[in-house]
Nucleic acid binder design. Structure first.
Length: 462
RNA sequence: GCCCCGUUCGUCUAGCGGCCUAGGACGAUACCUUCUCAAGGUAUAGAUCGCCGGUUCGAAUCCGGCACGGGGUACCA
């Protein structure tokens, strides 16, 4: 049987969550390694939380990251449609089939009654679970009430005793007592399925072989196992990867961290660096290297090697990683990336190719290019501090008579500094400030060579 | 509250009973290089492997309990 993995994002956020990107990466690598398929299915059954345009942005971000899918809502596939709202008719049918077999029942309880029930359970220190009131209704009566149009849901009928267990590919045996599993709603009163029903049916119909998702789903998994058993379907292999956490150890959240892939794109991070960083959070390359591509990872990856603990998302390390990737990139590629990233940058290929070797190792994100290199294109209008007129005059005089080579300029400035009994480094600093507006930046003399004698002297004159 | 998952330097990890006086990376600090800042190089600090018991000649590694952290507990996913 071929390996088919999937991610099933809900279009309820602005964009692809970085945690979903991580899960997507693992799913992709598992499928790719086995020569199987990686699929995207949109789970849009919560109509109240739908966010306009979310689905398109999720797909776009996955594409930008470089995690290609073989089937999905945008490209179709053998098991289309890949959007749950387009597959509505089958869910109800399956649920009613479960009712016929006694594995589910109609429930007419109101939100008010359920709330009251939970309050009471909480007061009595009992686990908040549906009390099974509607399970006692005669099925024929229930059916006729439904036919008369009475508002209702369908709940799964969880056995009162026994244990439901599964083997997690990265955590091993996990088991739950059935008595503690709630009679989960599987069809809502708006006739949409809940996640639990939808995911089981679709994974089965789409022949998903490995369910790899976040650990926040572990407690829901027994419900899904039960449903597979009710339907008499084969249970796919299951693995739960760790959730990513904020520095304060809580689950990664947008309150405390940028969480959307587009946030990282906008800050000038490269997809390869993001993927490499994400991979390194729970997996290490066998020979210990820190920098590796998705392809290299795919060749040697085993899902059982994934760490079980939940890592903290460390932006500092991502920045370092991003710098590594920028330095590895060719000047041509980097130039194209920068053009695409920042519209300030003039499309002057010749000049850019002169500048890039000077700034490449000084930038950790694409966003840092402009503040580093702006002075090559524009005369600075803001200065980091007040200049020293006497020292910059020394530089100006020295340079005005100099040939425009690195050696000549350096010699002139040093000699002039000596004559004036000033430290060469102080004069260089004034020169830097006058020309670039800043006290830190790319190598000075190389920068002046790109800038040209005329422009340099103009800036020194003021 | 209840259920489940987890626990090696600040952070990410290596480690699968003796090779561990616990290795690497990020970050930090110092030095080298130097026109600044980076990059690069070198070095230093940083973990009694959550705690307590047990198994064993020997435990970070196996077992049990506890503590702590996280996740879940919806007609959200």
């Amino acid at each position: 049987m071929s390996v088919r993995t999937r991610i099933a994002p809900s279009p309820t956020g602005q964009d692809l969550h970085i945690g979903n990107a991580y899960t997507a990466l693992i799913n992709y690598v598992v499928a790719k390694k086995a020569g199987g398929q990686f699929i995207i299915r949109i789970e849009d059954t919560d109509r109240t939380r739908l966010v306009e345009g979310s689905e398109q942005r999720i797909l776009a971000s996955l594409g930008w990251l470089g995690i290609p899918h073989q089937e999905g809502p945008d490209i179709g596939g053998q098991y289309a449609p890949y959007r749950q709202s387009d597959r509505l008719e089958s869910y109800r049918k399956y649920a009613e089939n479960l009712i016929a077999k006694g594995h589910a029942y109609y429930c007419f309880c109101t939100a008010e009654r359920l709330e009251e029930m939970r309050k009471k359970q909480e007061a009595d220190h009992k686990p908040p679970m549906y009390d099974g009131l509607c399970k006692t209704i005669d099925p024929k009566d229930a059916k006729s009430r439904v036919e008369k149009g009475e508002r209702h849901v369908i709940r799964m009928n969880v056995p009162d005793d026994g244990v439901t267990a599964f083997t997690d590919l990265i955590r091993g045996e996990v088991s739950f007592e059935n008595a503690l599993i709630d009679d989960q709603v599987i069809i809502k009163s708006d006739n949409f399925p809940t996640y639990h029903l939808g995911v089981v049916i679709d994974d089965h119909e789409m022949k998903i072989s490995h369910i790899i998702r976040g650990e926040e789903w572990i407690s829901s998994t027994p419900k899904h196992i039960l449903l597979y058993n009710f339907f008499g379907w084969e249970i796919p292999k299951i693995a739960h990867v760790s959730v990513l956490r904020n520095p304060d150890r809580s689950k990664l959240s947008k309150r405390k961290n940028p969480v959307w892939v587009s946030d990282y794109k906008a800050k000038g991070y490269l997809p390869e660096a993001i993927l490499n960083y994400l991979a390194s959070l729970a997996w290490s390359y066998p020979d210990g290297r820190d920098v590796f591509s998705v392809g290299e990872m795919t060749d040697v990856f085993e899902i059982s090697q994934l760490k079980t603990s939940a890592p903290i998302f460390d932006v500092e390390k991502l920045r370092w990683m991003n710098g590594e990737y920028i330095r590895m990139m060719s000047d041509e590629d980097l130039m194209q990336q920068l053009y695409a990233f920042d519209s300030h940058i003039p499309h002057d290929d010749v000049k850019m190719k002169q500048i890039l070797p000077l700034v490449k190792e000084r930038m950790k994100t694409l966003a840092e290019f402009w503040s580093l290199a702006r002075f090559f294109f524009e005369k600075p209008d803001v200065f980091e501090r007040l200049g020293n007129i006497r020292l910059s005059a020394i530089a100006r005089e020295a340079l005005s008579e100099s040939d425009w080579t690195h050696e000549a300029m350096e010699k002139r400035v040093r000699e002039a500094s000596d004559v004036a009994h000033e430290k060469a480094r102080d004069v260089f600093m004034e020169l830097r400030l006058a020309v670039t507006g800043k006290t830190v930046g790319p190598p000075l003399l190389e920068s002046l060579m790109i800038l040209g004698k005329e422009e340099t002297l103009k800036r020194l004159t003021g």
